[in-house]
Amino acid sequence: MYEIVKAEKLTPDVIRLEIRAPHIAKKAKAGMFIMVTPDEHGERVPLTMADFSPEKGTVTIAALEVGKTTKQLGKMKAGDQIFSLVGPLGLPTHLQNYGSVVSIGGGIGLALMYPVVRAFKQAGNHTINIIGARNEKLLMYEKEIQAVSDEFYVCTDDGSKGHHGFVSDILKKFIAENKKVDLVYAVGPIIMMKVIANITRPHNIHTVVSLNPIMVDGTGMCGSCRVIIDGQTKFGCVDGPEFDGHKVDFENLTARNKRYIPEEQISLKRFQEAK
Protein backbone atom coordinates (compact mmCIF):
# COMPACT_ATOMS: atom_id res chain seq x y z
CA MET A 1 0.00 0.00 0.00
CA TYR A 2 1.23 3.46 -0.89
CA GLU A 3 -0.10 6.58 0.80
CA ILE A 4 -1.34 9.58 -1.14
CA VAL A 5 0.16 12.68 0.50
CA LYS A 6 -1.45 15.25 -1.77
CA ALA A 7 -4.34 15.15 -4.24
CA GLU A 8 -5.39 18.03 -6.45
CA LYS A 9 -7.16 18.78 -9.71
CA LEU A 10 -5.00 20.39 -12.38
CA THR A 11 -8.00 20.90 -14.65
CA PRO A 12 -11.58 19.73 -14.16
CA ASP A 13 -10.57 16.39 -15.74
CA VAL A 14 -6.99 15.91 -14.61
CA ILE A 15 -5.99 14.57 -11.22
CA ARG A 16 -2.50 14.95 -9.78
CA LEU A 17 -1.49 12.65 -6.93
CA GLU A 18 1.67 12.88 -4.91
CA ILE A 19 2.36 9.45 -3.45
CA ARG A 20 4.83 8.28 -0.83
CA ALA A 21 7.24 5.83 -2.49
CA PRO A 22 10.82 6.67 -1.45
CA HIS A 23 12.33 3.64 -3.21
CA ILE A 24 10.83 4.72 -6.55
CA ALA A 25 11.58 8.43 -6.07
CA LYS A 26 15.25 7.60 -5.48
CA LYS A 27 15.58 5.87 -8.86
CA ALA A 28 13.14 7.79 -11.04
CA LYS A 29 14.37 9.64 -14.10
CA ALA A 30 12.63 11.88 -16.62
CA GLY A 31 10.64 9.99 -19.26
CA MET A 32 9.91 6.89 -17.16
CA PHE A 33 6.46 5.77 -16.02
CA ILE A 34 4.71 3.96 -13.16
CA MET A 35 2.14 1.15 -13.16
CA VAL A 36 -0.71 2.01 -10.84
CA THR A 37 -3.43 -0.31 -9.48
CA PRO A 38 -5.86 1.64 -7.30
CA ASP A 39 -7.29 -1.35 -5.40
CA GLU A 40 -7.22 -5.16 -5.39
CA HIS A 41 -9.91 -5.38 -8.07
CA GLY A 42 -8.20 -2.76 -10.20
CA GLU A 43 -6.35 -2.96 -13.48
CA ARG A 44 -2.70 -2.03 -13.92
CA VAL A 45 -2.47 1.27 -15.79
CA PRO A 46 0.73 2.96 -16.90
CA LEU A 47 0.77 6.58 -15.79
CA THR A 48 3.04 9.44 -16.49
CA MET A 49 5.49 10.43 -13.81
CA ALA A 50 4.93 14.18 -13.62
CA ASP A 51 7.53 14.65 -10.91
CA PHE A 52 9.59 12.84 -8.31
CA SER A 53 11.45 14.00 -5.25
CA PRO A 54 14.11 11.79 -3.65
CA GLU A 55 14.28 14.32 -0.78
CA LYS A 56 10.57 14.09 0.05
CA GLY A 57 10.42 10.42 -0.92
CA THR A 58 7.45 10.97 -3.19
CA VAL A 59 6.47 10.50 -6.81
CA THR A 60 3.79 12.51 -8.57
CA ILE A 61 1.47 11.06 -11.17
CA ALA A 62 -1.05 12.83 -13.35
CA ALA A 63 -3.98 11.25 -15.12
CA LEU A 64 -6.67 12.40 -17.50
CA GLU A 65 -9.95 11.11 -16.08
CA VAL A 66 -11.38 9.30 -19.10
CA GLY A 67 -12.07 5.76 -17.94
CA LYS A 68 -13.07 3.89 -14.82
CA THR A 69 -9.61 3.61 -13.30
CA THR A 70 -8.59 7.21 -13.88
CA LYS A 71 -11.98 8.45 -12.61
CA GLN A 72 -11.49 6.32 -9.52
CA LEU A 73 -8.07 7.92 -8.99
CA GLY A 74 -9.75 11.28 -9.49
CA LYS A 75 -11.87 10.65 -6.40
CA MET A 76 -8.94 9.77 -4.17
CA LYS A 77 -7.83 12.09 -1.39
CA ALA A 78 -4.74 12.71 0.69
CA GLY A 79 -4.41 9.88 3.21
CA ASP A 80 -5.97 7.29 0.87
CA GLN A 81 -3.93 4.22 -0.03
CA ILE A 82 -3.00 2.96 -3.51
CA PHE A 83 -2.91 -0.86 -3.67
CA SER A 84 0.04 -1.27 -6.03
CA LEU A 85 2.63 1.07 -7.49
CA VAL A 86 5.42 -0.33 -9.65
CA GLY A 87 8.24 1.68 -11.08
CA PRO A 88 10.14 3.46 -12.30
CA LEU A 89 9.54 1.60 -15.57
CA GLY A 90 10.62 2.10 -19.17
CA LEU A 91 13.83 3.67 -20.37
CA PRO A 92 14.57 7.24 -19.28
CA THR A 93 14.83 10.05 -21.82
CA HIS A 94 18.22 10.03 -23.49
CA LEU A 95 19.84 13.19 -22.20
CA GLN A 96 22.74 15.07 -23.72
CA ASN A 97 23.49 18.56 -24.92
CA TYR A 98 21.86 18.37 -28.34
CA GLY A 99 22.03 22.15 -28.83
CA SER A 100 18.60 23.51 -29.52
CA VAL A 101 15.69 21.27 -28.43
CA VAL A 102 12.09 21.98 -29.36
CA SER A 103 9.75 20.14 -27.00
CA ILE A 104 6.07 20.01 -27.81
CA GLY A 105 3.35 18.84 -25.47
CA GLY A 106 -0.40 18.55 -25.68
CA GLY A 107 -3.11 17.70 -23.17
CA ILE A 108 -2.07 15.23 -20.46
CA GLY A 109 1.31 14.97 -22.22
CA LEU A 110 2.23 18.24 -20.54
CA ALA A 111 2.58 16.46 -17.20
CA LEU A 112 5.22 14.11 -18.60
CA MET A 113 6.81 16.92 -20.59
CA TYR A 114 7.69 18.92 -17.49
CA PRO A 115 10.39 16.66 -15.96
CA VAL A 116 11.74 15.95 -19.45
CA VAL A 117 12.22 19.60 -20.45
CA ARG A 118 13.62 20.34 -17.00
CA ALA A 119 16.21 17.63 -17.64
CA PHE A 120 16.95 18.98 -21.15
CA LYS A 121 17.59 22.37 -19.58
CA GLN A 122 19.85 20.87 -16.90
CA ALA A 123 21.80 19.07 -19.65
CA GLY A 124 22.67 22.48 -21.08
CA ASN A 125 20.28 22.63 -24.04
CA HIS A 126 18.65 25.73 -25.45
CA THR A 127 15.07 24.76 -24.63
CA ILE A 128 12.22 25.89 -26.81
CA ASN A 129 8.94 24.65 -25.37
CA ILE A 130 5.56 24.70 -27.05
CA ILE A 131 2.51 23.69 -25.05
CA GLY A 132 -1.04 23.30 -26.24
CA ALA A 133 -4.57 22.40 -25.17
CA ARG A 134 -8.12 22.76 -26.47
CA ASN A 135 -8.62 25.88 -24.35
CA GLU A 136 -6.98 27.95 -21.64
CA LYS A 137 -8.69 26.03 -18.80
CA LEU A 138 -7.14 22.74 -19.93
CA LEU A 139 -3.57 24.02 -19.95
CA MET A 140 -1.38 22.65 -17.18
CA TYR A 141 2.21 22.88 -16.00
CA GLU A 142 2.35 26.23 -17.77
CA LYS A 143 4.37 28.09 -15.10
CA GLU A 144 6.63 25.12 -14.37
CA ILE A 145 7.48 24.56 -18.03
CA GLN A 146 7.91 28.27 -18.66
CA ALA A 147 10.44 28.41 -15.81
CA VAL A 148 12.75 25.94 -17.60
CA SER A 149 12.26 27.46 -21.07
CA ASP A 150 14.60 29.66 -23.06
CA GLU A 151 11.71 30.25 -25.43
CA PHE A 152 8.11 29.45 -24.57
CA TYR A 153 4.94 29.29 -26.67
CA VAL A 154 1.33 28.60 -25.69
CA CYS A 155 -1.32 27.44 -28.18
CA THR A 156 -5.04 26.85 -27.76
CA ASP A 157 -7.43 25.39 -30.31
CA ASP A 158 -10.02 28.07 -29.52
CA GLY A 159 -7.60 30.98 -29.16
CA SER A 160 -8.48 31.57 -25.50
CA LYS A 161 -4.76 31.89 -24.76
CA GLY A 162 -1.59 32.35 -26.83
CA HIS A 163 -1.50 31.29 -30.45
CA HIS A 164 -4.93 30.47 -31.88
CA GLY A 165 -4.24 27.08 -33.46
CA PHE A 166 -2.11 23.96 -33.13
CA VAL A 167 1.31 23.41 -31.58
CA SER A 168 2.43 22.15 -34.99
CA ASP A 169 1.86 25.62 -36.49
CA ILE A 170 4.73 27.01 -34.40
CA LEU A 171 7.04 24.17 -35.39
CA LYS A 172 6.19 24.70 -39.08
CA LYS A 173 7.04 28.38 -38.67
CA PHE A 174 10.45 27.53 -37.13
CA ILE A 175 11.24 25.26 -40.03
CA ALA A 176 10.13 27.84 -42.59
CA GLU A 177 12.39 30.39 -40.87
CA ASN A 178 15.33 27.93 -40.90
CA LYS A 179 15.56 28.18 -37.14
CA LYS A 180 18.21 25.93 -35.58
CA VAL A 181 16.46 22.78 -34.34
CA ASP A 182 18.64 19.82 -33.29
CA LEU A 183 15.97 17.69 -31.66
CA VAL A 184 12.21 17.67 -31.51
CA TYR A 185 10.56 15.97 -28.52
CA ALA A 186 6.80 15.42 -28.70
CA VAL A 187 4.40 14.00 -26.15
CA GLY A 188 0.62 14.14 -26.30
CA PRO A 189 -2.28 12.69 -28.29
CA ILE A 190 -1.23 10.16 -30.97
CA ILE A 191 -2.53 12.39 -33.75
CA MET A 192 -0.40 15.30 -32.49
CA MET A 193 2.77 13.18 -32.36
CA LYS A 194 2.05 11.80 -35.83
CA VAL A 195 1.58 15.30 -37.29
CA ILE A 196 4.83 16.50 -35.69
CA ALA A 197 6.76 13.50 -37.02
CA ASN A 198 5.37 14.12 -40.51
CA ILE A 199 6.48 17.76 -40.36
CA THR A 200 10.07 17.00 -39.33
CA ARG A 201 10.60 13.90 -41.50
CA PRO A 202 11.33 15.71 -44.80
CA HIS A 203 13.85 17.92 -42.97
CA ASN A 204 15.61 15.04 -41.24
CA ILE A 205 15.17 16.57 -37.80
CA HIS A 206 15.61 13.86 -35.20
CA THR A 207 12.21 13.51 -33.50
CA VAL A 208 11.49 11.59 -30.31
CA VAL A 209 7.93 10.72 -29.30
CA SER A 210 6.65 9.21 -26.04
CA LEU A 211 4.02 6.51 -26.72
CA ASN A 212 1.12 5.36 -24.57
CA PRO A 213 0.13 1.82 -25.61
CA ILE A 214 -2.15 -0.38 -23.48
CA MET A 215 -0.08 -2.35 -20.98
CA VAL A 216 -0.74 -5.17 -18.52
CA ASP A 217 2.42 -5.89 -16.51
CA GLY A 218 4.62 -3.06 -17.78
CA THR A 219 7.82 -5.07 -17.30
CA GLY A 220 8.23 -6.79 -20.68
CA MET A 221 6.32 -9.93 -19.87
CA CYS A 222 3.19 -9.81 -21.98
CA GLY A 223 3.54 -7.76 -25.15
CA SER A 224 0.19 -6.00 -24.84
CA CYS A 225 2.09 -2.78 -25.50
CA ARG A 226 3.83 -3.89 -28.66
CA VAL A 227 4.39 -1.16 -31.20
CA ILE A 228 5.81 -1.35 -34.70
CA ILE A 229 9.03 0.62 -35.07
CA ASP A 230 10.62 0.59 -38.51
CA GLY A 231 8.73 -2.62 -39.30
CA GLN A 232 10.02 -4.34 -36.14
CA THR A 233 7.89 -5.27 -33.12
CA LYS A 234 9.04 -3.49 -29.96
CA PHE A 235 7.58 -3.38 -26.45
CA GLY A 236 6.48 0.08 -25.32
CA CYS A 237 7.18 -0.80 -21.69
CA VAL A 238 10.80 -1.95 -21.87
CA ASP A 239 12.07 -0.69 -25.25
CA GLY A 240 10.21 2.61 -24.84
CA PRO A 241 8.12 4.52 -24.05
CA GLU A 242 10.19 6.89 -26.24
CA PHE A 243 10.89 6.03 -29.86
CA ASP A 244 12.13 7.65 -33.05
CA GLY A 245 8.98 9.40 -34.28
CA HIS A 246 9.90 8.86 -37.91
CA LYS A 247 9.84 5.08 -37.47
CA VAL A 248 6.61 4.64 -35.48
CA ASP A 249 3.60 2.96 -37.13
CA PHE A 250 1.00 5.38 -35.71
CA GLU A 251 -1.95 3.70 -37.50
CA ASN A 252 -1.20 0.41 -35.77
CA LEU A 253 -0.85 2.17 -32.40
CA THR A 254 -4.18 3.96 -32.91
CA ALA A 255 -5.93 0.69 -33.78
CA ARG A 256 -4.34 -1.21 -30.89
CA ASN A 257 -5.34 1.44 -28.37
CA LYS A 258 -8.99 0.91 -29.34
CA ARG A 259 -8.90 -2.81 -28.49
CA TYR A 260 -10.99 -2.69 -25.34
CA ILE A 261 -13.35 0.25 -25.91
CA PRO A 262 -16.56 -1.81 -25.37
CA GLU A 263 -15.25 -3.23 -22.08
CA GLU A 264 -13.95 0.17 -20.99
CA GLN A 265 -17.48 1.52 -21.43
CA ILE A 266 -18.98 -1.32 -19.39
CA SER A 267 -16.53 -0.65 -16.55
CA LEU A 268 -17.16 3.07 -16.61
CA LYS A 269 -20.95 2.69 -16.63
CA ARG A 270 -20.78 0.25 -13.73
CA PHE A 271 -18.54 2.64 -11.77
CA GLN A 272 -20.83 5.60 -12.36
CA GLU A 273 -23.96 3.64 -11.46
CA ALA A 274 -22.39 2.39 -8.23
CA LYS A 275 -21.97 5.90 -6.91
Binding site: H41, G42, E43, R44, K68, T69, V216, Y260, P262, E263, E264, I266, S267, R270
Partner: peptide, 10 residues
Protein backbone atom coordinates in the same frame (compact mmCIF):
# COMPACT_ATOMS: atom_id res chain seq x y z
CA UNK B 1 -14.42 -12.00 -13.26
CA UNK B 2 -14.73 -8.84 -15.39
CA UNK B 3 -16.41 -6.40 -14.68
CA UNK B 4 -16.16 -7.24 -10.97
CA UNK B 5 -12.43 -6.98 -11.61
CA UNK B 6 -11.37 -4.21 -13.98
CA UNK B 7 -9.03 -5.97 -16.40
CA UNK B 8 -10.91 -6.90 -19.57
CA UNK B 9 -10.41 -9.99 -21.69
CA UNK B 10 -12.40 -10.90 -24.79
Amino acid sequence: KFPEYDTPVR
